[in-house]
Nucleic acid binder design. Structure first.
Length: 1039
RNA sequence: GCUGGUGUGGUGGAAUGGUAGACACGAAGGACUCAAAAUCCUUUGGAGGCAACUCUGUAACGGUUCAAGUCCGUUCACCAGCACCA
């Protein structure tokens, strides 16, 4: 009677004692195979039946390859960093280190029950400092190569998890782990420049053997598209309304002014400087509404002042005038609180240089600035809010901030007051340090669009900018300003999710127009939220006739729709390009635009750089110290070798900090002990609280560190603070397959010879959920390591397959909360590991999702019982002998071929059926020891414990797992008699058994003698043709 | 919407263009048993027939072929991925 408990316990014990050994050999001459399963995250929940499905499947392969004489590496380890452990640790108030240790122990105990032939001597653990030492080391190489950098961008923030997440970790606005809502916020993070590898990650998919669906998903995610970037110029852009304050802005009057003040007021230079500064910096008390006597005094003063100044002949700022001339579509007025006496000659000069003001208003014209501005705006027909006002004085800014648009008050730092007072009052971008900075106030406005359909260029009706597009504010006309701002606000308040789900297109006209690069026509510019800022250029050329979204938009807002491509893909309405095919047109248009310098070919990717920091505790610390600018200047010696070409900096408390690397000898940088693992807010992770760890002395030549609590040994040590973010848990898994090759190396991440032996991984099995995450990331790391000469292959995995998920009964996902999980340990206890293994292989196609069904498991357990009974019965000699050895040979070799091929092709379910079929055929027979041996050998990879037991019952002393895999022998399929099917007009009508030696003609004769055939074909003349084919089919075709 | 895939009994699923439903589960009947479990035997897509057997049948419709679950076209349904990606 088959007792799975005693058998399995017995063999687990014997194997542990060394009856078999699955250690892979790093220096064996044998052909080798590297089979890899994704190493598990050791969660508190323990092993899942889904883990077992893939581990057993690949175990079967590994076992077969070993029996075929190959040197097989089938390793296992622990991907143990990550949020779930950390959250579990917080909830239970224990250290994540302890929690991880406990979980790993549970997993190991459970795995030990399953008869898996892992090479435990190479077990790795990403949270072991001796492992993450090399994770940190690799990261330092990326830092040095300039691939790791800091950037402030919109990233996904998950408030529930209190950390940022990578784009790949957010699905439909929810976190991949846990499904918590995420939002886009602007934060400074470590990034990895995976986009630099986008092209190779896409192209090299051609040379690997991945499941097609995996390649498709990777390609989708990388999102390569070939197209063109086209410039749409904004020559007919909206008028710029500019008023220049004269003194200190257009004219260099400072010295002369002081001179004049000294003369008029009879004071010395110091006093005069002070007086001038007061006048310029204080809130003004202007003459409007002043008393007559006061007005007279000011009149007299100003006129006198002007006379003196005119004599002194101040100069204009020629360089600035040149810059102003370069601006296009401007209306310019000049105002001054001085007098015509000195201004008029200078204006003449300015006009000669090409600036033609519509107004030059001085003190004589009007007392106050406000009045002057009102007059100018009135003449121009615009509002005060539309004008840009350039001044060098604080006084003007105070006076005008309520009249004009505060964002359009521009300070000129070369004036009387100097730069700093203006910076105190205005945002930096509104203060000009140099003449050419005016370009930034009115940037030259081209709108770049990306398109894959340059052939539709003549169908462009309008342009659409993303509402976040930075140029939008500067091109919008006053008339549409409010509408645009409202729209921008609306967009901002919508989550990305809402924005995606919005069905109806919305948008607003900007009032501005661009120029079509070929026709020169005016193209209206709109903004709409169907255009996304984070793809392409954030702007599109809209071709309503040939783009569905543009069409919808055009229909809604009554914009034209012009067909430029016929149904036969020939261009029409496209000027010189009419009659060309779209393909030709694409080439020619690209050429023309390139020639005119208005566009060029461009390859665009959807892939974004990888957000690589987390505000959490349970991850690898960055081997980085932040030091100040001065200290960075002192960096020298050895450590310079490890610096990137461009320093990485961040702003903290108004200071610039520089990221410098730890010396490789300092690795691993271990996680400090902290009092609390709870993440705090958006800023910093729990590591920030470990003050003793964070604050260090950094050696400027060696990159060594000491705790700040120790006395600074000498001047070579500078103050530094460690990075307090940690790496995401994808870091450790990005290179673990390399470590298996040489798991205990203390000198390098793995020995070169070992890598050469094992790489690339021959077969990598993992879940579909990691296809855009882990699989892409690790290919990226691998390619980088290849580039710096550390790995011998350009791709890590030669072949990648995926197992289907195991669902709960009823076809829904297993989850603790639904209470529908299946505990593999319970299954092993009730039915045995062998039954569980067989069932998981038998339940359905390996790569498809499938629902758990315990009664199916019972069936498999029944099968093993029958096998056991059959073979033990044969030993007691009670069965009738199977005498037809030809048939027995035939069946056995068909079985050998079937199983060998099906294991190779992941068709485990049909392996099991054929083992069952063979059993059903011979269960009442004694087939003899030779055939039993073969049968048990074929069964061994699937059910290692029972096979071992039956092997022993047969009297063998060595393990079945060390035996030789049966060889398929074609010659054993030769039979004396063969069955031939007779098909008449496609229908199978009879089966005849004939001597296998007969030739086709004789077989045809036999077929025509068949009774069945004769009842159907009474008239032999109706036979058109008879064919005997390779598959033992006789095909008769009749009229 | 786009891309890829799938559609076969009551269920999981087999099937290099050539006997559709292997294998297993479940169900029904029977044997063993005082009884139950376990085990063993028989039947099990549908319709007809005492039976030999016949017809029909792989989402729907059409096509190619001597022959189609398999190849082609259209439609429908489901699954997965991407998703206003310009």
């Amino acid at each position: 009677m088959y007792n799975h408990r005693t058998i399995e316990q017995k063999w687990i014990q014997r194997w542990a004692e060394g009856f078999v050994d699955y250690t892979a050999n790093n220096s064996s001459g044998k052909e080798s195979k590297y089979i890899l399963v994704e190493f598990p995250f050791p969660s508190g929940a323990g092993l899942h039946v889904g883990h077992i499905r893939s581990y057993v499947a690949q175990d079967i392969k590994a076992r077969m390859y070993r029996m075929q004489g190959q040197n097989v590496l089938y390793p296992i380890g622990w991907d143990a960093f990550g949020l779930p452990t950390e959250n579990y640790a917080i909830q239970n108030n224990i250290s994540p280190i302890i929690a991880t240790e406990n979980n790993i122990n549970t997993f190991k105990k459970q795995l030990a029950l399953l008869g898996l032939s892992f090479d435990w001597s190479r077990e790795i653990n990403t949270t072991d400092p001796q492992y993450y030492r090399w994770t940190q080391w690799i990261w330092l190489q990326m830092y040095k190569a300039g691939l790791a950098y800091q950037d402030t961008t919109k990233v996904w923030w998950c408030d529930e998890l209190k950390t940022v997440l990578a784009n790949e970790e957010v699905i439909d606005g929810k976190s991949e782990r846990g499904g918590h809502p995420c939002e886009r916020v602007s934060l400074t993070q470590w990034m990895l420049a995976i986009t630099k590898y986008a092209d190779r990650l896409d192209k090299d998919l051609d040379i690997v053997d991945y499941l097609p669906v995996i390649k498709t998903q990777q390609r989708n995610w990388i999102g390569r598209s070939e197209g063109s970037e086209i410039d749409f110029k904004l020559e007919h852009q909206t008028e710029k309304y500019i008023i220049f304050d004269f003194d200190g802005v257009l004219g260099d009057t400072e010295k002369e002014t002081i001179q004049a003040i000294m003369e008029i007021s009879q004071i010395d230079e110091t006093e005069a400087l002070k007086k001038n500064f007061n006048y310029l910096s204080k809130k003004p008390s202007h003459a409007r509404g002043a008393e007559d006597s006061e007005i007279k005094r000011i009149d007299a003063w100003t006129l006198k002042f002007g006379e003196i100044l005119a004599k002194l002949e101040p100069k204009i700022f020629n360089g600035f005038i040149d810059e102003i001339v370069k601006l296009q579509n401007t209306k310019i007025a000049i105002v001054s609180s001085g007098s015509h006496a000195y201004i008029t000659p200078m204006i003449e000069e300015i006009k000669k240089l090409g600036v033609n003001p519509t107004h030059v208003l001085t003190y004589e014209d009007h007392y106050s600035k406000e009045e002057k501005i009102e007059i100018i705006c009135n003449d121009w027909g615009v509002s005060e809010k539309d004008i840009y006002y350039f001044t060098d004085s604080q006084a003007d800014i105070y006076e005008l901030e309520n009249l004009c648009d505060k964002n359009k008050l521009i300070g000129c730092g070369w004036g009387h007051m100097g730069l700093q007072p203006l910076l105190d009052l205005l945002p930096e971008q509104q203060v000009l340090k140099r003449f050419e900075d005016i370009k930034n106030i009115f940037p030259k406005k081209n709108i770049k669009v990306f398109t894959t359909r340059i052939d539709t260029l003549f169908g462009v009706i309008f342009l659409v900018l993303a509402p976040e597009h930075p140029i939008l504010d500067t091109i919008v006309t006053s008339e549409y300003k409010e509408a645009i701002q409202t729209y921008q606000k609306q967009t901002k308040s919508k989550s990305d999710l809402d924005r995606q789900q919005e069905k109806e297109k919305t948008g607003v006209f900007t009032g501005a127009y661009a120029v079509h690069p070929l026709t020169g026509e005016q193209i209206p510019i709109w903004t709409a939220d169907y255009v996304l800022m984070n793809y392409g250029t954030g702007a599109v050329m809209a071709v309503p006739a040939h783009d569905e979204r543009d069409r919808e938009f055009a229909e809604k807002y009554n914009l034209a729709i012009i067909n430029v491509i016929t149904e036969d893909n020939i261009l029409e309405n496209s000027d010189l390009y009419n009659g060309l095919s779209t393909l030709e047109a694409k080439q020619k248009l690209t050429q023309e635009l390139e020639f005119k310098n208005l566009g060029h070919q461009k390859i665009q990717y959807k892939l974004r750089d990888w957000v690589f920091s987390r505000q959490r505790y349970w991850g690898e610390p960055f081997p980085i110290v932040w030091i100040n600018e001065q200290s960075y200047g002192q960096i020298s010696g050895e450590i310079v070798k490890f610096l990137p070409a461009n320093p990485i900096t961040r702003q903290k408390n108004n200071n610039t900090e520089y990221a410098v690397p730890l010396a490789p000898t300092e690795l691993p940088l271990e996680l400090p002990e902290v009092e609390s693992y709870i993440p705090e807010g958006q800023g910093e992770g729990p590591l920030a609280l470990a003050k003793d760890w964070v604050q260090v002395w950094y050696h400027i030549e060696t990159g060594k560190t000491l705790p700040r609590s120790e006395t600074k040994p000498d001047d070579k040590w500078v103050e530094g603070i460690r990075e307090t973010d940690t790496m995401p848990n994808w870091a450790g898994s990005s290179w673990y397959y390399l470590r298996y090759a040489d798991a205990h190396n203390t000198q390098e991440l793995a020995n070169q010879a070992a890598l050469e032996q094992w790489l690339p991984v021959d077969l990598y099995n993992g879940g579909m959920e990691h296809v855009t995450l882990h699989l892409l990331y690790s290919r990226f790391w691998h390619k980088f390591l290849y580039d710096i000469g550390l790995v011998p292959t350009i791709e890590p995995y030669q072949k990648r397959i995926a197992h289907g998920m195991i669902l709960a009964e009823g076809g829904i996902k297993m989850s603790k909360s639904k209470g529908n999980t299946v505990d593999p340990v319970e299954m092993v206890e009730s039915f045995g590991a062998d039954s569980l293994r067989i069932y998981e292989m038998f339940m359905g196609p390996y790569d498809e999702a499938i629902a758990w069904d315990t009664s199916g498991l019972i069936g498999c357990s029944r099968f093993l019982k029958r096998v056991y009974q059959w073979i033990t019965d044969m030993q007691t000699q009670t069965l009738e002998k199977a005498v037809d050895t030809i048939k027995l040979d035939y069946d056995t070799h068909i079985l050998i071929r079937k199983i060998t091929e099906d294991i190779e092709n992941q068709k485990y379910n049909t392996c099991i059926s054929s083992l069952m079929e063979y059993l059903n055929t011979y269960i009442n027979k004694d087939i003899g020891k030779e055939y039993i041996t073969t049968y048990i050998t074929l069964l061994a990879p699937f059910a290692p414990h029972i096979a071992e037991e039956l092997w022993e019952i047969l009297g063998k002393t060595e393990s079945v797992h060390k035996s030789i895999w049966p060889q398929f022998d074609e010659s054993k399929l030769i039979q004396t008699e063969a069955d031939y099917q007779i098909h008449i007009n496609g229908k199978m009508r009879d089966i005849i058994t004939v001597n296998a030696q007969l030739d086709n003609e004789a077989i045809q004769q036999k077929a025509l003698e068949s009774d069945k055939v004769n009842t159907i074909i009474t008239d032999k003349t109706r036979i058109k043709k008879i064919i005997v084919n390779q598959d033992k089919k006789i095909v008769i075709i009749i009229y």
